[in-house]
Design a protein around this nucleic acid. Structure first.
Lengths: 90, 90
DNA sequence: GACAAACATATCGTATATGATATAATAAAA
DNA sequence: TTTTATTATATCATATACGATATGTTTGTC
């Protein structure tokens, strides 16, 4: 599964499939959360990038879901959104 | 702050300092969670490594907290512990 | 102390994350 | 449509994650 498939599953709204996918791919959940928060705060990728001390293209790359970010990177993004990153086992 | 300082703060048991440190360093929390779960399941680093398809030394390196793991790596570890990795914004 | 099991550290090679810049594509507004 | 704002994609250089092996260190048991 890649992120495009994931988004499709989420957007089709099949709840079971959706849940299953989310369990498989927590990195996609954090992407969704970041995008949602950024939109909610009416920030552009460029603004988020500046606050996170990186570039717009890197934010876009992250949001596209086509790579495997590090914890440090996620923390930078979270901080730039005035949020705390939480990583847990369930 | 590095992980040794973090552990010291946690182990001294100063709750405020401890909380503050945890907020600063979610990656340390997941390390603690992994170690706790591994011990709880009475697994050695070598056993965990085998289940996670890696080597004991790499588990040790992760648990030592001296580097910056990727989401994918964390997922492998979580899976090997029969757990779900959760990454959220709070 | 001797031995073994578990964990830590060092190091190297390779793959990939990340920053950075440029530019293309898209959306939105005039 | 033209212009502008926003996001996506491509690419390169550098840093670092990660796998792997070897070896050191600690811990426990006899």
């Amino acid at each position: 599964m890649n992120y495009k498939e994931y988004k499709k599953a989420v957007l089709t709204g099949n709840p079971e499939l959706c849940k299953e996918y989310k369990a498989l791919a927590p990195q996609y959940e954090i992407i969704e959360a970041v995008i949602a928060t950024r939109i909610e705060k009416q920030m552009t990728q460029a603004e988020l990038a500046e606050r996170a001390d990186t570039k717009q293209s890197n934010i876009s790359r992250f949001e596209s879901g086509n790579y495997n970010p590090s914890v440090e990177f996620l923390q930078k993004i979270a901080g730039a959104l005035d949020k705390q990153l939480e990583i847990t086992l369930r």
